Computed example of a mutant assay.
Amino acid sequence: MIVAGIGSKRGVAMEDVLAALDAALARAELARDDVSLIAAPAVKGGEAGISEAAALLGLPLVLVPQSQLEAASSRTKTHSERVVALLRVPSAAETAALAAAGAEARLIGPRLALGPVTCALARRGSVA
């Protein structure tokens, strides 16, 4: 199972979310069909662009509570001071992907930032 974690600035467009997802998938040599769900911090629940992207792809959107983001923090690969100031975690995309994929999940690679969106891919179970 592969989870795509999404972080974004406010007001992000669906097209920006899809572009970041596609770029992260291309870097990992994966396809959209390999993704089982989209995850984002719960505070992003009102972001239409994220929910519209998940709906277009026919994937569930999991909104990860703050406590679960924090629990996944030690497994991240990158660190953003901006995200630490806003969410108290090193990476919104990475912690969302890891938390939604489970305790044994590992990142496929570091988050990819593209414009106003970051995307990280996590695989349940083992390192890719």
Rank of each mutant, 00 (worst) to 15 (best):
S126Q: 06
A93H: 12
G49N: 09
H79L: 08
T95P: 04
A55H: 10
S80C: 05
R10C: 00
P116Q: 05
A92I: 06
G5P: 08
R10I: 00
V83A: 05
A55E: 14
R32G: 02
V84I: 14
R82Y: 12
A28Y: 11
L114H: 15
D33T: 13
E94P: 06
G5Y: 13
V43N: 03
I108T: 14
G11D: 00
T118W: 10
T78K: 00
R123V: 10
A99H: 13
V127N: 09
L69S: 08
D22N: 15
A24I: 11
I38P: 04
P90T: 02
A101Q: 08
A39D: 10
L25A: 10
D34V: 09
S80R: 07
A99S: 13
R82C: 00
L87Q: 09
R123I: 08
G109M: 12
C119V: 12
P116F: 02
Q68S: 14
V89F: 07
V43H: 07
S73D: 03
D22T: 05
Q66L: 07
E29H: 15
G45H: 06
R82H: 12
P110C: 01
V62E: 15
I50P: 01
E70C: 02
S80G: 02
M14R: 15
L114E: 13
A19K: 14
G49Y: 06
L121E: 10
E104D: 15
V89R: 10
V127L: 12
A85V: 04
A4R: 05
L107S: 11
S126L: 10
M14H: 03
E15V: 08
L18F: 03
A24K: 10
L86H: 13
I2E: 03
A96D: 09
A24P: 02
H79R: 14
S67I: 08
R75S: 03
